[in-house]
Nucleic acid binder design. Sequence first.
DNA 1: TTGAAAGCGCTAACAG
DNA 2: CTGTTAGCGCTTTCAA
Lengths: 341, 341
Amino acid sequence: MPVTIKDVAREAGVSPSTVSRVLSNHPRISAATARKVREIMQEMGYHPNLMAKSLVSRTTRSLCVVLPKPAEELFLNLFFMELIRGIVAQAAHDGYDVLISPGASATEEIEAVARLVNGRRVDGVILLYSRRDDPVVEFLRERDFPFVLVGRSPQYPDVRSVDTDNVRAAYDAANHLIALGHTRIGFVGGPPELVVSADRLEGYRRALAEAGLPVRGEWIVEGEFLQDSGVRAMSLLMRLDERPSALLVVDDFVALGVLRGLPELNLRVPQDLSLVSFNNLALAELANPPISSVDIGIYELGRAASGSLIAAVQPAADEQAPKRQIVPHRLIVRQSSGRAD
Amino acid sequence: MPVTIKDVAREAGVSPSTVSRVLSNHPRISAATARKVREIMQEMGYHPNLMAKSLVSRTTRSLCVVLPKPAEELFLNLFFMELIRGIVAQAAHDGYDVLISPGASATEEIEAVARLVNGRRVDGVILLYSRRDDPVVEFLRERDFPFVLVGRSPQYPDVRSVDTDNVRAAYDAANHLIALGHTRIGFVGGPPELVVSADRLEGYRRALAEAGLPVRGEWIVEGEFLQDSGVRAMSLLMRLDERPSALLVVDDFVALGVLRGLPELNLRVPQDLSLVSFNNLALAELANPPISSVDIGIYELGRAASGSLIAAVQPAADEQAPKRQIVPHRLIVRQSSGRAD
DNA sequence: TTGAAAGCGCTAACAG
DNA sequence: CTGTTAGCGCTTTCAA
């Protein structure tokens, strides 16, 4: 039987409310009683029951983050893990716990969130990489429940979110290739329903247009890339009459897939083909050759998401907190991108 | 103001306890009232307050999993993500939520767990890859709090755990290389304080001994492998007079590091060097060449861990639940392992 | 500065 | 089969 606030009160010869006040550092409590009560708490091994506290305070001091569906996001696993680290670190710092909600299927996903939200089990929700018409976003907006998006949702420009400026990131990456003298630059995208794919494509387009370079439809490939489809797409790309001398690739994992397809095409990186990708996951550095990649500060994104959401759910926060927040990126140049010959 | 059990009771013209009984499918409730109450709940948008339920039931229906410290486990990120998926999937299936606890430093780690455990915020804890003398294990054993280890702890053979038979897995992998005709087989290990490293080394030793092959000290490398130290270790290994023709590598990520160091040594895989690694992460298939790897069923490990822990915290579970559980592994042969010439 | 009392939303005897 | 009553452990008026 765990020791309760009553036990401490009895032992200390005060009332439960006094103990409670000591617990919450109430100002009008005599230093003497405070010290004494704290002593007894220590002795008896008292620990506040968080559930009871939640019940009366009507807040849980916990957030939930929705795990993306594996089918859709498997290649984002590394990304996600680092994001969680950031989320959890900031949350812990602010005294919040983080709950993981499963994302098996769309219906299960929303059911799980609904249970947590309706059951007042969490104070806020963190959502990732919103797709168009995300039902969870709809659900949360409807009941005006606090949430933050990692990524952006074109449908809901006013939603609280933290994001990379992906257009700009792709623009910068493309300009790196342009500065190296490349004029035939292709783009390998991810699942097109993700906003991030579209944004990076847009930045690519913009940089090329600005430099007066051609953007050819057949130089742009989109889709799932992990399996042999990646290899096939590459061979397609590389069999064109005029083939690109450099590629912008939407994610390091995808870049790894591209890299794998090259030996059978007798292509070397960077001699025959330069590569720049995004996210700068641990494997970008480890790949062979190491891949130039845009570091988007994933951990930082996680921290920012936590921070922003927590600020929003705190009662009397200064209303300063901006709804949209951009985390800066920077290009890490490695051996996969070289001068055009 | 959310609708409570009282509101429903009033509206349905019954007592709160009746509503509560309907909620928990109490057998002795008339079909008619049950239907009616459910109807009203639906209409009014009633959702049970999980905190209140927890307070009275003295159980939270949630588990917590302790995130490994980044320094120590960074190369296990992918592993960990898949494990979490398994954990969360099984937990959700059994009606449990999963909380992530940060593992920034040893003291923070134990403080965070203590807060959750003492505050009765969770019913059980999932721990990963226990190091020797894990303080969290100590803490939990002391207060007899339910937990499960993913991996094994030689100090505490009686602790509830799910694990791979790593000795056997390494034994199998080594025998694969032996069957391919290799006689000079090296071993590239991970951080030596992890039990998994020691176990895999042991299996390697056993297979070689059984086949009458030499185990040479200089063919065994241990340590952090992600950075250039990997490359250096490789060049060391490969500059020996008698160098191995095949390598057992403790993790796919580490294998990727090894792979990266080879071109400058003018070595090709598998022609000059065969490679077999462990864990079969997504990148094993994506590497160049694709890496033969022992699939240890990470997702399954996660599910098993959840399941085992949940069984343990359920009140009247049949005491059948074995304390130690082994999840089967299987070798996936890819192009990185070829015949010895 | 402290105590008494009421209540957060729910469950669980104990009656009826 | 259903209602009454008494808490779960904590916070918070309101009085003293």
